[in-house]
Design a protein around this nucleic acid. Structure first.
Lengths: 199, 199, 199, 199
DNA sequence: CTGTAACCGAGACGGTACGTCATGTCTTAGG
DNA sequence: CCTAAGACATGACGTACCGTCTCGGTTACAG
């Protein structure tokens, strides 16, 4: 089977995603329209719909790219690692394109299993990996006990929900920023909690 | 200035809010339309717009009523109080009308200060009150030290963001349910954290 | 059954039909779009579609109004009556809005029985009435024999197809104008033909 | 200058024209699309556009081929010749591909001089030739006087507009078929008219 | 007990975005 | 140079919802 016909323009893809992010900043989720994105990207609506079936999927992909920048360098201690990831995630969520888009697509994903999967793959799993990496670093340093054979999934999920949930809630619901003091307080709470549950 | 003219129908209000919740269950946030709500409530669109300026405000009020049922009975220990409120909040969020609506209005509130205020008054403050009450109960029992004169706001906000954020994240983003075991684990983490920060 | 709701704007109807005729002059049949008509009429597309289901029906109604002006005053002789109606019909067809629209809707009416009916009622029957009236005038004057009891429908239809067809063909297909000389020649041919068939 | 490169496929031309006629039958003028014609002909759109600039020209050529079959055999009398050509033309117009296409391209030719020329060359002149031939036959037989030096163009055009117009109008506008009786009646009218104008 | 003012239903209104479709051009790989 | 395949920019399509408005008609309080 030979590939035939004109190939899709790769540069159109990136132009569309960038236009989507810019439109989110300017107009918010509710004001974002496919026509506007197409116009900003210098692309026809058809081209846009050929790649993404609807607004939700487009925005997920556009926003997902922002999560690529999340990293977990070894900062020398579990406390520093937690503070680092909290600050990083906080700064990411405070960007207007993330702020306006993330909750909206999560809301739309209720009752749309395909969208939920796309979000999980593109965004959630990428963050959860940070928790797993941080845990491994701490075990290597001896700050946390090594795996005892029990499944650590539940604990990882809990820590993930606490960290990500707290940051999301503070930024989007409470509407306050994530600064060093708050990050330190959250890290202290979690460290205490880990010590308490371990003991 | 005397109020004259035909008074507004009080039963229309409740019919509209109930119709809104039902429509959210059936159609989700994206599929909900004002016309549909009006039709379900047996009411003209005019009547609807006379009371709520737009979809967001209507949904906030419709959903806010659900949060009235949150209570913090004294369960005898801080641990039990936390587990109780986590389970209560989890069950509330797992209802389809809450699930689909809450994140959506939060998303819309980005860049809409009036909407953000309405959400804060109608929803957020109502939940935060639970944290404050639980803290006072624990102090009365001697589980937590009494106020030392320092402003406890920061600590209350942190605990609130952690509890509410973790529950929201688990239910809406991770897509898993809040059961007794998870509630116990979260309560344990927070209790350990409080002990650690206090010590 | 009581009439309820806001009544339709009668002035919108006429604005739309006039805008349609003007758009036909400017753009021709192929270039005419519903959006453009709506914009010219200062009316929303919805308003337009509420009244006419598609381009064809709209144009039929817009053009039909032009045929209202066709009259058959008694000019004193059958020859003069024929010449008069030929000239009138020729002038009507030479107007750009008629020229471009008439054949197009006739073409579309192939395979659309509803459209064919609409055309017949709104346009064709209105013209055929002129032939019937002219025949009666001529009988009153003694130029044609009175009805002998036989059905005159076939003869009327033939004369109608010859006159209307010849004018349409000359103007639209041959692309030449209908002037006095041509009208006289056509009238002479028909008068001769009538005499021949009668004799 | 030598012709180089791959030569055009001659069989593609006929496949396209035949596909066009078939598509006209199935979909009518309004429903006919270039993509569909290309698909039916098993040909790429590029190939189609390389030969015909647009839909109108393609359809003119596709339909014009049908007019090639018009003939005027000498049937022995002017009356028989007229009846013959009327019946022939009627049968041609009653074919669905002709019916739906002819008026449509005529309508489009309003305001498109190039298209008008193409129609005249491909279709109109081919028919008018029949009138000229019939006239010459009749003169040869002595049924009509020989040319007296005056320009017969006006008379030929009139007869042509009357015959072609009447047939077109009966079939397409009145929506009735051209049968022997009607053809005879039309022939009688024209013969009477010729006699009357000559006398 | 009659105004009158604000309410009510219904539904038409001007807008705007939707997602699809057809047009005519272009860019590939291959004949 | 032609061909098939198919992506491209453009722009109209007909639908749906928005939030406003205009109707005729309905309360309930005021004079």
């Amino acid at each position: 089977m030979t590939r035939t016909g004109r190939p899709r323009s790769q540069q159109a893809d990136e132009a569309i995603l960038e236009a989507t992010r810019q439109a989110l900043v300017d107009l918010g989720w509710g004001g974002l329209t496919m026509s506007d994105v197409a116009a900003r990207a210098g692309v026809a609506k058809t081209t846009l719909y050929r790649r993404w079936a609807n607004k939700n999927e487009l925005v997920v992909d556009a926003v997902a790219a922002l999560f690529d920048e999340l990293r977990l360098p070894d900062r020398g201690s579990l406390r520093a690692d937690i503070e680092g990831v909290v600050l990083q995630f906080g700064r990411l969520l405070e960007r207007p394109e993330t702020k306006t888009a993330l909750m909206a697509v999560v809301a739309e994903s209720t009752g749309d299993e395909a969208l939920r999967c796309r979000i999980r793959e593109a965004i959630v799993d990428r963050q959860k990996h940070l928790v797993i990496a941080g845990r491994r670093h701490a075990q290597d340093r001896g700050e946390l006990p090594p795996d005892d054979g029990a499944d650590p999934t539940a604990e990882i999920d809990l820590i993930f929900d606490v960290i990500a949930g707290a940051v999301v809630h503070r930024v989007l619901v409470s509407g306050e920023s994530v600064d060093g003091a708050w990050a330190a307080a959250l890290a202290a709470l979690i460290l205490g909690g880990l010590a308490g549950t371990v003991a």
